[in-house]
Design a protein around this nucleic acid. Structure first.
Lengths: 223, 223
DNA sequence: TCAAAAATAGGAGATATCTCATATTAAAGT
DNA sequence: ACTTTAATATGAGATATCTCCTATTTTTGA
């Protein structure tokens, strides 16, 4: 991790203005942190000292269970917050955050900003929207995971992450995210190929029948 | 549903003061709604016109999937909000809310209160805490549901809902909540009895080995 | 550049969980 | 009080998913 200073810091601040989200002058408190790919921004169980606002890059939220299973709880993208739970709650089990690409964040030190932020109507309104989206998404994922087999959830995931016709997520990541074993994921991908929905091309999968996948994924939604 | 007026309304307002949560005079806008047991407060898919704040009673949040399965997403208790998603988001699939006991709510009409609430730093701070707790809980349930078999989640649920040594939740409710079939729930309850963790007593179950259940439930937690 | 680690791949058998069918009992409505 | 509906109970067979094992390929790091 690298903390940007001077011109570098300023150029991020210019490229991603954020003052409008706050009623008080926030810029002076902002640190700009640059994380490399595959770096732990926050270690599981260790409370962070900052509220982060992602301006570039991608990361993942992980939690490790006592039985050794790892859940990838969600993906984090630009304009997401990290550490807002710790900002709001004294007691909270901190999840691990790991970058999956180079990631740049604004980091607001709690000890300087917490009070002000919790008095700031602009920021709080922004945060409620972020949190309501998060809660909604989690509730949807939760109920879907219990109500549908992998087939449907995987079809949805493929459509959401495919780049044009090409699906190429790492299996290991997808297992953690969808909460199934590697073996079973491969099994269902194999079925999709057999049925002609996908075609395997080396390590990639090419979507052959959009509509079939859409139908499977569509069953998840009323929402 | 009944809307309380005059003395009745006032006596609720006196018994459950709420002005301190708002920076503006809220009382004049409050309607007091009384719902009977097993009444639908909000029908799935129908946007409500109010933000509700529960002051007495219990309710459940339901969503129906396209495959006919019903998920009981969460329980609602006194001091919870209902309709906060619709307050914040223009686009949102409204879940069904059904009371399980007589329930009394403060109802704030959106058309009169939305603007003011979204400008109110006290209320927003309160709401962020509520939402962060909700998001956290959902994330925990989600990852647990994928990482652990029913055995562990049921043990946890029994300990959370048992009244002294007596567990007596309706099976049908529990199925919807834990996302398993009736048949399987009974199967695992049967195992608990065989192992001596529970003893069946008519329609109730009596906890015989707290520690065994605690051990099973404890595996869910690092959190 | 080479060894170690991570990711992919698939077989085989176990188990968690589901579906369907059928009875019985309790609760609710008129 | 009686009919209808909801809840409980259980068997049997199907399927979704897991665990463990082993082999190959790719990526990573010193």
């Amino acid at each position: 991790m690298k903390i940007c200073t001077n011109e570098e810091r300023q150029s991020y601040l210019d490229a991603y203005p954020i003052a409008h989200l706050f009623a008080f002058p926030i810029e002076e408190f902002i640190e700009v942190h640059e994380y490399k790919r595959d770096e732990w921004m926050i270690r599981e169980g260790m409370r962070p000292d900052y509220l982060f606002y992602v301006i570039e890059g991608k990361a993942k939220i992980y939690v490790t269970h006592q039985n050794g299973k790892v859940s990838l709880i969600n993906f984090i993208n630009a304009y997401d917050y990290i550490g807002e739970m710790e900002l709001l709650n004294e007691v909270y089990y901190t999840k691990g955050i790991r970058t999956s690409t180079k990631t740049v964040c604004y980091a607001f030190p709690f000890h300087l900003c917490r009070e002000k932020m919790l008095e700031d109507v602009n920021f709080l309104r922004e945060l409620t929207k972020f949190l309501s989206a998060k809660a909604t998404k989690m509730a949807a994922k939760y109920s879907q995971s219990l109500a549908f087999p992998l087939e449907n959830r995987l079809a949805d995931f493929i459509l959401q992450t495919a780049d044009e016709e090409v699906y190429k997520e790492k299996h290991v990541t997808v297992c953690d995210f969808l909460g199934v074993s590697y073996r079973h994921l491969l099994h269902v991908l194999g079925q999709f190929c057999e049925k002609g929905y996908l075609k395997k091309d080396g390590r990639r999968y090419c979507i052959q029948q959009y509509d079939s996948l859409k139908e499977l994924a569509g069953k998840l939604r009323n929402q």
